[in-house]
Simulated scan of single mutants.
Amino acid sequence: MSTIYTHQLFTKTAELPDNWDQVAQSCIFLQKCYLQILEESSPENMLNTFLGIFEGEKLMATALIQEIDLALLPSFGERDHAIKTALRNILFKQFASKLLLVGNNMLSGQNAYTCLPDADESKVIEKLREVVEFWPKKNHLTIFKDFTESQIQAFQIPAFQTDFPFSSQPNMVFEIKSIWQKEEDYVADLSKKYRDQFKRCRKKGAEISTKELNYEEILQAEETIYDLYLHVAKNAPFNTFILPKKHFSSFKKHLGSEFILRGYYLKNQLVGFTTVIRHGKELETYFLGYDEKIQREKMLYLNMLYDLINCGIIQGFERIILGRTALEIKSSIGAKAVRLKGLMRHRFGMIHTNLSWIFPLLEPATTWIERHPYKD
């Protein structure tokens, strides 16, 4: 007898089944503590729906679906040449502004769905396709995002046969060697060129002090934190959302010690911050911010990256997920590019059949050189 799966959509975490977290235990970004953050402090142009997939009364899988309206943004990034930026803005607003996304647009990696071990994953994925196919609101693009080479194999089923496969900028992942016990062990494995880079960076940033902020301290510094974040966000080559001001305090409130916001101070003035999330054996970087003048003078961003490595080593993590920005500088500290794949379908057939040449116009190209900082 064929397995029959049904589904239910939820817009509030209070409505979720009691055993939701048991099903989603492998992914903190599908657990209630994180979904409460989305419920409380999502970007204004993003709506989140939580999907439960059932076999009879039994919850078999959980998923996150996001509706993103890019037309509500003033622009999608301001760093590129004005003509290129203007062209991208026109293309997005006319043909790709309303997105229906299975996954999380605020993170890198497979945070789209989780299944129980005894679930039929093919049936789960088929149900996901069915749900978005009959979504009540009209959208331009339906996207399933951020799957590794092995994860994307599950989508090799008839329901996705006509979807356009795409790959965007890679996720930079830093692997922590088990033999490293302290920062000095990492530095000792670098070639002379990159040991000199480390020493120069640490010397430049010697006047900078750091501090992990608790919930009350984040609230007190929220205005400055947000200004620092906005500076970096608005100078990115591509944006699909802007976080609300209370986002970081909401994170700390709901995740507690699993969320770390580290402030960077120069003469008692907050000039930068980083955020990370503890996720099993992985340390997942989130958003950051800094004063551009201090960043240039003190090599602040590179110092932040080295601090993340130190944190990862000392706290026993196996890897650090560094995300999709600043690929070359992350490569220079030892991070490797992991290609992530996705599938998309455009609502209009003529546009869908031409996505192979339209997609490169929407996705800003990034040229970078892979670095090899370790000794041979």
Rank of each mutant, 00 (worst) to 15 (best):
S2N: 10
I4M: 09
T11S: 12
K12I: 13
A14N: 11
D18G: 02
N19R: 05
Q22P: 04
Q25K: 15
S26D: 15
C27R: 13
L35Q: 07
Q36R: 14
E39S: 04
S42T: 06
M46I: 14
N48L: 00
F50K: 01
G56T: 03
E57S: 15
L59W: 01
M60I: 09
A61T: 05
L64H: 07
I68N: 01
I68Q: 07
I68W: 08
P74W: 06
D80C: 07
N89R: 11
N89S: 09
N89T: 03
Q94L: 12
S97K: 14
V102N: 02
N104W: 08
N105Q: 09
M106D: 12
S108V: 07
Y113A: 00
K123P: 01
I125Y: 03
R129Q: 12
W135E: 10
N139L: 07
H140M: 06
S150A: 14
Q151F: 01
I152F: 01
F160E: 00
F164S: 02
N171C: 07
M172T: 02
M172S: 08
V173T: 03
F174A: 03
F174N: 05
E175W: 06
K177W: 08
I179C: 11
W180M: 05
Q181C: 10
K182Y: 05
V187W: 00
A188E: 12
L190S: 05
Y194L: 04
R195A: 02
C201M: 11
K204V: 06
E207Q: 14
I208L: 09
I208G: 06
S209F: 13
E212Y: 11
E212H: 13
L213H: 08
L213N: 10
E217W: 02
E217S: 04
T224H: 10
L230Q: 13
N235F: 04
N235E: 07
A236M: 15
A236W: 07
L243Y: 06
K245N: 12
K253G: 04
H254W: 11
L255I: 01
G256K: 15
L266A: 14
V271N: 01
I277L: 08
K281S: 15
T285G: 14
Y286C: 03
Y286G: 03
Y290R: 10
K293I: 15
I294N: 00
R296S: 13
R296C: 08
R296M: 13
E297C: 07
E297R: 11
L300D: 08
L300Q: 12
L300A: 10
N303G: 09
L305G: 01
I313A: 00
R319G: 07
G323P: 04
E328I: 00
K330A: 02
S331N: 02
K336Q: 11
A337E: 11
A337R: 05
L343R: 01
M344L: 15
H346C: 02
S356V: 10
I358D: 00
F359V: 05
P364V: 10
A365H: 12
T366P: 00
H372S: 06
H372F: 08
P373A: 00
P373M: 01
